[in-house]
Design a protein around this nucleic acid. Sequence first.
DNA 1: ATGGCTGTCCCTGACAGA
Length: 260
Amino acid sequence: MLLATWNVNSIKARLENVLSWLKEAGPDVVLLQELKCVDEAFPREPIEDLGYNIAVHGQKTYNGVAILSKFPLEDVATGLPGAERQPEDDHARYIEAVTGGVRVASIYLPNGNPVPGPKFDYKLGWMDRLVAHAGDLLALEERTVLAGDYNVCPTDADVFDPARFAGDALCQPESRARFRQILNMGYTEAWRAFHPDGPQEYSYWDYQGGAWDQNNGLRIDHLLLSPQAADCLSRCGIDRGPRAAPKASDHTPVWCELAV
DNA sequence: ATGGCTGTCCCTGACAGA
């Protein structure tokens, strides 16, 4: 099973880019973030025509997540448990389903800037709920992949200029500690598992300042695997191709292969 | 030099992104 995550920065503006990549790369399961549209506006037909089933959790203008799969989608759930602890959480940032023998979640973690402030508090609260849910899922002892735009650079090795980002919400010790909590309970971060000592590789490049041309990137899109999923992990990579295309998203797909 | 892109909604400028 080829499984990928991609923050597309508007599914409507990116439809042709997404269709091209689906045809070219042929992933079995794709976890999308930042749809920026409501459920009814999601362009289902052209994606279904390529053989995908679709589960969408959309929202007007902002956020929005989806799961595409060539396998049936079962047990679809939207929203992260514990929203009652964050009454301000009306964002569409989480969708989960079981497909092809794997439980998958598409995650769009809050950005959290500026630091300090209510947006950073929201990010940390959301991460606390994600940590709790990741623990609950771990107890199921299933193949589970929690993937998406985590908006966290796990270490300074994931930042082109750590000094410039020292005050950024993506690099704060509090953000990194919560990301590490998920790893420490037993999840494997797929890309880092294959590259424990580098090289530096990124999944996001700002639109501004020639960031792509100068490879001034960040690695913030991650695939986190339960032990049962990690046991099947055979390959992992970052596909820079879509970022170089015309009208590209500022993120590019990160993918892994599970031998299931 | 505190902006530099891009997308969205529709107060076509303000907000969010990261």
